[in-house]
Design a protein around this nucleic acid. Sequence first.
RNA 1: GGGGAAUUAGCUCAGUUGGCUAGAGCGCUAGAUUUGCAUUCUAGAGGUCAAGGGUUCGACUCCCUUAUUCUCCA
Length: 874
Amino acid sequence: MNASEIRQSFLDFFHEKQHTIVPSAPIVVKDDPTLMFTNAGMNQFKDIFLGNETAKALRVADTQKCLRVSGKHNDLEEVGYDTYHHTMFEMLGNWSFGDYFKKEAIAYAWEYLTEIVKVDKSRLYITVFGGDQQDGLEMDQEAFDFWRSHIAEDRILLGSKKDNFWEMGDTGPCGPCSEIHVDIRDDKDREVLDGSKLVNRDHPEVIEVWNLVFIEFNRLANGSLNLLPAKHVDTGMGFERLAMVIQGKKSNYDTDVFQPIIQEIAKLSGFAYGADQQKDIAMRVIADHLRTVAFTIADGQLPSNNGAGYVIRRILRRAIRYGFTFLTLEEPFVYKLLPVLTSQMKASFPEIALQQELVAKVMFEEENSFLRTLSQGIKRFENFVSQHADLKKIDGGFAFELFDTYGFPIDLTQVLAREKGIDVDMKGFSEQLEVQKNRSRNAAAVASGDWVMVSAETHPTKFVGYTQTEATARILRFREVTTKKKKHYEIVLDQTPFYAEAGGQVGDTGVLVSDNEKIKIFNTIKENNLIIHLSADVPEDPKAVFRASIDVQKRLKTENNHSATHLMHAALRSVLGNHVEQKGSLVDAERLRFDFSHFGKMSAGEIQKVETIVNERIRENISNETIENVFIDEAKSMGAMALFGEKYGDRVRVVSFSRDYSVELCGGTHVNATGRIGLFKIVSEGAIASGIRRVEAITGETAENYVRQLQQQLEQIKEVVKGTGDTVKAVVQLENQLQKAQKEIERLQLEKAEADADRMLKNANSTHGFLLINDIVKNVGIDQLKQIAMSLKQKNIDLVAVLAGVQNDKPALCLFFTEKLANEMSWDAAQILKEASREIKGGGGGQKFLATAGGKQLDGLEAARKLILSKLNL
RNA sequence: GGGGAAUUAGCUCAGUUGGCUAGAGCGCUAGAUUUGCAUUCUAGAGGUCAAGGGUUCGACUCCCUUAUUCUCCA
């Protein structure tokens, strides 16, 4: 079986068992602050387990794109070194939401593995939760008994809480789990040592393939466990591992999931896979990371310098680093592997093909910029080494600075040091890294308290904000959340007019008012689908009936901007082309920001066209036509722009302003008719990444104020330039005149300096075989004195000049002599002036043969000049 | 969210403990060389040293604020 056949067989199997097959959720998580990436198949069903949402189907199966870069069994820096660690992988999974439980879950897994894909039964082992004293839990006898009907008892092993008890987090749903392990060692090795001895021992050939989780408890913040009313099954099977087992390989990287990519890397680098251990590692790293980065960018996450984008950047850079160091790939190359990946994956994941051009552009740009970082780091390293002769060890602090400030990877520093036959002080480096980590951890610490359940109702909050700005509401539950700086409260209501931050639109602010108290809501956010009101105050009487009202002015302005965003999106597509796709947006009361794919800068004409079209649509006063609960296919046939990377349920909300103009899937709030938006004005256009542009615009009152301000500015300028006709021409003329005048001043100053110099030369005395100038000039500052000295220098005569000047009642000094004299007499002009300037309460310095000084005590000037002459023995 | 850095000519970057009339390479313009081109040589134009404030006799350099970008950590 090849990889796609295996994937299909899994989905077909569960389809026959009455499971609904759902598509993979995006790998990038947008509406869960605790998670950056989908890291398990169950993520998209989290709300069902948490009880925030009811399941649409009781039995579900899918293959899910997952990404893990850290965690107990996963560390980015380990990927590539062994046969089975990945950053991105597919997780095959089947779920039961309050439907079947342990018996069926176990039977299905056994049937699929042994009957469908025919894994050798003698290679399988089972683990079952063995109980935990601290939690007061018995062993999972139920699971044990069900397994006994399929497999011999001595192949069922009891596992600890660490291996066989699954928890979503510190609190929340959890339960015992049962794992299926497979022993893929050669028969010879199997005879020597029984596989059961190697289960959960990190042996690369005795591995877990499938984890069946039986969710039956809820863990509270105090650590105790409650039984859940509805029990769920959550299973996950690593697709790449399964392929390895079925295809009889010893490494995931030897399956047809990875080999085509690895062979392409071999071709590009000119090294064969399998010939050299270090090069093999590099190829595995690149193959793995390519998949991760490509899928993530295709799902809408661009590399950036924080959060999820930063994780992607780091992964891509790791791939480049390995190519650079071990495969002599010193030009951008990762993006060249995309066509292979695409042709392999597009059948199951069409987004990867549709976004290929953009992904390639973004990757190419990232690769280039990192290669620049590398070459600068190398330069910096060379500098350091050449400045520290006889270096035995590279200072840990310096290595850390290279890494921390300039992004130069520590292992490359080690490679460079080794080439010079020196070590890097890794202890010092690690210490500084640890300091940095602690600082960050302290700053980010968040402690959430238990939810205080006010009401027994469990239904999700009813959002009434599409039609109302006020509603009566009861508190369902609330909790206290403490961050380092302050604490706040999170409140869940039974119904609310507050829009929670989503889809780029900011959350509402407002108040909850009861008979006795008034609680200010400073923001509204969404955790998965839970609407959470943020407040600085704890409700004193949580059971009271509240009047929930939003800040209407703020909401109206935000709606103007949101609707304008839709109009602009459509206008951009008609002006620039259909390749324009939304890549992100931010809508608040002040402005709208829209990121979209487009190659190249928008011309002034294009910007104007977009502005014009949007303003036309506003004047047409098009009514908002919003349809709730539309099937996704129907929405598409209406012409809705389906956005890749957005997670949508089976039914969606469609917002349109004229069916043939703007139709979008959107959960946000909008104007009833476009006329209310008022004036629309684009204020900036720029690039945020290769192939991605950002436009910012304003509407309504804000736009009016903006235009008014421009007008006022223009009028003021007109007044200043006294131009009645062409103001621009007048300003340009003024600028030209100014430039000319400045040049003229410079020229005159130079001329004057020349004249001064000539005059001084005439009056100079000849002593000791050279000319001595001792002069004082009125209305001349340090800069001009310097100019005079430079003029004297050009004369190429042996001379000493002691120049003094007075400007704005401040004394200035300049001492100049030819370099030849400086050498012969061992004079140091800077040193002499430093001492002399004390007489005028100032300071000075410069070079050996030309120095200047200034001060603030005018009557010390004579003394200073005398001092200089005496220092020169003149 | 926290820490570290960067911002100097059209581009890529130098600029030492505060004092050099702010430089280099590439690019640009003109001239010379050449049958022509590449090349080479000569000359020239091009700078609000990110913006704003402060310290100082003096700030590209030190301090503060802001903006943008990079980078590490979370």
